[in-house]
């Protein structure tokens, strides 16, 4: 019997698998953000600590940087679609060039002290 290993099949299978992985990754990511609820801006401003542990996607426009500390991150003021402004913390690990005027979908988690900590972000 001649060899059963056909290199052509392998050459075709690898790109196909790579494409399938990529598509799968995209779909996975989209499904992950779509799982998060819209951010309740007004209620959060009134009582941030009561939202402890929740995660939301906050679609907002960066307005200004309120503070920055090396090794810690930056404190941003963003304006939500409803016009309200809130402060969010972008950890240094996110490491993106964020500028005023840019619009992001922020994956945020409410910390115990009420801080909105960004866990991920996506520009839109």
């Amino acid at each position: 019997m001649k060899g059963k290993f056909n290199p052509v099949i392998i050459a075709v299978a690898i790109p196909v698998l790579a494409i399938a992985f990529a598509i799968g990754s995209v779909f996975y990511k989209r499904s992950a953000t779509s799982r998060s609820d819209a951010f309740p801006t007004a209620a959060y401003v009134d009582s941030p600590a009561s939202f402890f542990g929740n995660r939301y996607v906050l679609k907002a426009q960066v307005e200004s940087q309120l503070a920055y500390k090396a090794g810690s991150g930056r404190l941003l003021c963003v304006r939500a679609p409803d016009g309200a402004r809130v402060a969010i913390v972008v950890p240094v690990e996110i490491g993106r060039n964020i500028q005023a005027g840019q619009k992001y979908g922020f994956d945020v988690e409410v910390m115990s002290n009420g801080v909105l900590m960004v866990r991920g972000l996506e520009k839109f």
Binding site: P48, R85, A87, V115
Partner: peptide, 14 residues
């Protein structure tokens, strides 16, 4: 409650 204060100041500034 610094976070709450900050966000309220921002709201008042609006």
């Amino acid at each position: 409650r610094g976070v709450e204060a900050l966000n309220l100041y921002l709201r008042a500034q609006d």
